[in-house]
Design a protein around this nucleic acid. Structure first.
Lengths: 159, 159
DNA sequence: GTGATAAGTTAGCAT
DNA sequence: ATGCTAACTTATCAC
């Protein structure tokens, strides 16, 4: 899109339509206090007063409109940036979620492996063995075991 | 905010300003094809032609402007709904994250407990005991153990 | 009167 | 010619 050059821009800057009998620029007129305006209005015809006041009002409205447009734009930008922020948050959480799920999965494997290992090797909870005979035969001892035994999980009350 | 009743609404509906010499309503004029318009323009003065065409253009522009505003509004609504959707997604992921983290934490506890339990009870990996004597004395057997033994974690190569 | 905003008008661009 | 959109103007409302 090429740059737009509005005739209204020139008009706005007071470079067009020198205005019959205008003695004050748009910029000046718009920035007068009511007091100053009234002073300026002294000695003007009723028609001139009305026209000048109307011009001031229109100029003010022009500013309000510009304001309004800018506000609309900035609110849109705010909305978009909030949306972007949320999108990033979603990504972050999604990634974090993936990581935690992988950790969970890995840990589950480890736990299952431990359970399986314990089962496979029949690791059971036994009361401390009671030495029956202290006379050992090549690394061997005579022990007494209780018939009661539990799996590790049972003993820990762990699922 | 109370309902706004614009004079321009009446003007738009052609109920105000009966228009000097107008023989066609806004609605009709705006919906003419170019062909129909040209037929209508026959026999009018150059000035009347220009004015009628200008009126048509203005009416069309009025519609375009309304269009433009509506589009602006709907895009804003889309933005907001997308934002809401993302916000919900963030909430959902956050909750899911919390759940998974709790699970992970619980499982970690379980694993640690198993490790501690194994250590506490000195559960070690031993080769299958070798029965030295089948003659048992009240629930006791004579077994031979190897001096080699590993912790459960070591044996599983698990951290 | 001042400021805001919806609707309408105008200017300018693009197709 | 048609459609769109930024800027402007007008009509209205709230304060």
């Amino acid at each position: 899109m090429s740059k737009k050059i509005f005739l209204t821009q020139l008009k706005k800057e007071g470079k067009l339509f020198p205005a019959e009998g205008r003695h004050i620029s748009d910029d000046e007129l718009i920035n007068l206090t009511v007091k100053e305006l009234n002073r300026l209005l002294k000695g003007l015809t009723r028609d001139e007063v009305v026209k000048l006041k109307q011009r001031r009002r229109t100029l003010k409205n022009r500013g309000y409109a510009a304001n309004c447009r800018e506000k609309r734009l900035s609110q849109k930008e705010i909305l978009e940036s909030e949306k972007d922020k949320l999108k990033n948050e979603v990504d972050r959480l999604q990634r974090e979620n993936d990581v935690v799920k992988m950790e969970l999965s890995a840990l589950r494997s480890k736990c299952q492996a431990m359970d399986r290992f314990a089962t496979l090797h029949d690791i059971r909870v036994l009361p401390p063995p009671i030495i029956v005979s202290s006379a050992s035969h090549e690394n061997s001892v005579i022990v007494k075991t209780e018939p009661l035994s539990l799996t590790m999980s049972d003993a820990m009350s762990v699922s």
